[in-house]
């Protein structure tokens, strides 16, 4: 079957919410802070834009509480482009999510990049008609979010660093988790479900299908066409690019190059061609020397 019954989702939700996310596969979703950047992203070939008040590298530098964007900016971005518009809410901030649904954004990102509003609960995503995307570092976190109603998962990486190392770690960890379920007997599946704090039906679905029930994208640290292709070869169905584009010296060329790299992720000749002469990438941060409390990926439970 195209989309097998997914525990916790109605057939219509599978088709309309998850179906929407399936349309984004192989395209690049770019972070933008205003309508001008959104137009640049669309021109570069983005499949969707993600509206947020500051890109992650600025959130890191400037500190303070990072929140949902100003609705005025979101409306301007919606008016500026014909591609889907996503926007971020703080973890657990279901009222920001209600506002984004009222603004008719196409997808809501409950994101660790913003300052969490609830340190115990994520948003209950089921009552919303708008699909949600959520971050994860491993299979358990992915399944908890899907159980709450997320229609799309992105591995978190470490946003705003321009360093792909955490994105790689999270994608590899997620796939090891999926592969580890293969052929597991009922007792072990139950044990995993307890460990992951989700219904056993969801764990069994993944054990059988050997994939997540929703599309699986990558985020957090992708700065070059090669980074994007690396995440695709590691099993991402596409990539979100945050600070990597608009914090580089030539956003249009870099955006176009990353779009081309994703579509040709298995072709090193094309990757070599599109990687040439792009100017300076965003300056990167070494995640190893970063204090634990500065890491965004640890937000979310």
């Amino acid at each position: 079957m195209t989309l097998p019954p997914i525990p916790g989702f109605t057939a219509d939700e599978v088709r309309s919410k998850i179906g929407f996310c399936e349309q984004l596969k192989g395209g690049v979703i770019m972070d933008v802070i205003d309508a001008d950047q959104a137009r640049v992203a669309e021109e570069a070939g983005a499949v969707a834009v993600m509206a947020l008040e500051r890109v992650p590298s600025d959130i890191r530098k400037q500190g303070g509480v990072a929140r949902m964007s100003d609705p005025k900016l979101i409306q301007e971005i919606k008016a500026a482009v014909s591609i889907p518009v996503m926007a971020k809410v703080r973890i657990g901030h279901f009222v920001e999510a209600q506002i984004l649904e009222a603004l008719e954004v196409d997808c809501i990102d409950e994101s660790e990049v913003l300052t969490p509003a609830d340190e115990e609960f994520h948003v209950d995503k089921r009552p919303f008609r708008t699909p949600f995307v959520c971050g994860c570092r491993d299979l358990g976190e992915a399944l908890r979010r899907i159980h709450e109603g997320a229609a799309l998962i992105r591995t978190k990486g470490e946003a705003g660093t321009g360093n792909v190392v955490e994105a790689v770690r999270h994608m590899r960890t997620l796939w090891s988790g999926i592969r580890a379920l293969k052929g597991m007997d009922a007792n072990h599946l139950h044990k995993k479900a307890v460990e992951y704090r989700v219904p056993v039906e969801l764990v069994s679905w993944v054990a059988e299908a050997q994939k997540l029930p929703v599309p699986n994208f990558s985020a957090g640290g992708v700065a070059t066409p090669a980074d994007a292709a690396l995440m695709m070869q590691l099993g991402a169905e596409t990539v979100f690019v945050g600070s990597g584009i608009f914090k580089s010296s030539d956003p249009v060329s870099r955006g176009k190059a990353i779009v081309k790299a994703v579509a040709n992720f298995e072709n090193p000749h094309v990757l070599a061609e599109v990687s040439a002469g792009l100017g300076e990438p965003m300056s990167g941060l070494d995640v190893r020397t970063m204090p634990e409390e500065e890491k965004l990926a640890v937000r979310g439970w």
């Binding site: 596969k25 070939g45 983005a46 499949v47 591609i83 779009v259 579509a263």
Partner: peptide, 14 residues
């Protein structure tokens, strides 16, 4: 299905 703007740009590039 997908995004026609993205497909158009990539049809030319490919």
């Amino acid at each position: 299905g997908g995004e026609s703007t993205t497909m158009l740009k990539m049809l030319a590039f490919q």
